[in-house]
Amino acid sequence: MKTKTFQETMKKLYDAKNREVLIASHRGKFSSSVMENTSLAFLTAIGEGADMVEMDLEETKDGRIVGHHDNDMKRLFHNDGKISDYTLEELRAMPLYNYVGEICVEGIETFEEILDSLKDKTVLVLDKCWDCWDKVYALLCEKDMVKQAIFKFYLKDEEPMEWAKAHEDCIFIPMCGDPQMFPKLLELGEHASVPAVEILPHAVDEPIFSEESFKWLEDHEIKVWCNSLSLAKRLVYGAGYDDLKSLRYGGDKGWGELIRRGVLILQTDWPYEVSCYLKEHQEA
């Protein structure tokens, strides 16, 4: 499958008339000993058709930035501590457990290593790293990759909003669950680049998932990102039009419904399957 450059993806993202659906791969494509939030996971996702790779970052005790999502280390390290409790050297000396509960060959990676692997290859979507944005931004500047990255944050949170306003050279896709917050998108847009917003619908009848919300965003040339993740029974994404429904009943029942509503960026754990569905849909 032909991979796309980050410049091609950014051009599509900023073209309001371009209705091509973009694929964001959640923590990369990972399974077994291919660990989430690592270079291998991201490169694999790119090879499977992802236009963007979403990642989570945390700061270690000695101030290094590493790829890691959870608030604690129980799932991947079988440790009750937090990433911030340990130095990078200590973390690399610990066993990292894979998805069948075995010690993994791969280890935790630094953001520098991830950047070196992905430079000029894809769009980096930086999700859970709000507490270390300054250091993340400094590393992006050092690697000349600011224009290759997108920062995400909750639109309702004032501290990251103020940081975003002060960094006009950065790109932002805020997360929003209430259309009453939409004017803040325009407020941020006066200071920085906001090509899209991530909506957070849990049910079909929520205002954020209404025709009016999609119409407002389209009128203001803001594209819609929506998760189609199916992580657990207690977690509902995309108003239930998720990966599991798509895989079990066919893409039209999940991904297709989100696209028909107006979603133009799909975050998924199944980039290859989504890319195949999109290709079939375009050819039909």
Rank of each mutant, 00 (worst) to 15 (best):
V21W: 10
K12N: 06
E142R: 15
V123A: 04
G28N: 07
M161R: 13
R261I: 05
G189S: 00
G256H: 08
E257T: 12
K223M: 02
G81R: 09
E36Q: 10
H281E: 15
D219C: 13
E211Y: 12
E113C: 10
I265Q: 01
R260V: 14
D15N: 14
V224Y: 00
M161P: 09
K4P: 03
P160M: 11
K223D: 01
E109A: 03
M52Q: 00
N71Q: 09
D56Y: 03
C276M: 14
G251D: 05
D269F: 07
P201E: 12
A239V: 04
D80Y: 08
F153Q: 00
R248M: 15
L186D: 13
E159A: 08
P174E: 06
M145I: 05
E20Y: 02
A164K: 05
C104F: 12
L96S: 06
I46V: 02
I46N: 00
F209Y: 05
N37H: 02
R260D: 15
F214Q: 10
L76S: 05
G28R: 07
V197K: 04
A203P: 11
D85V: 10
F6G: 15
I259V: 10
K156G: 12
S39F: 00
E106F: 00
L13W: 02
L13A: 01
V263G: 01
G251P: 00
Q148E: 13
P195M: 03
Q282L: 15
N98S: 01
K4V: 05
L126Y: 03
G63I: 01
F42G: 03
G240C: 09
G101T: 13
Y277S: 10
H281L: 15
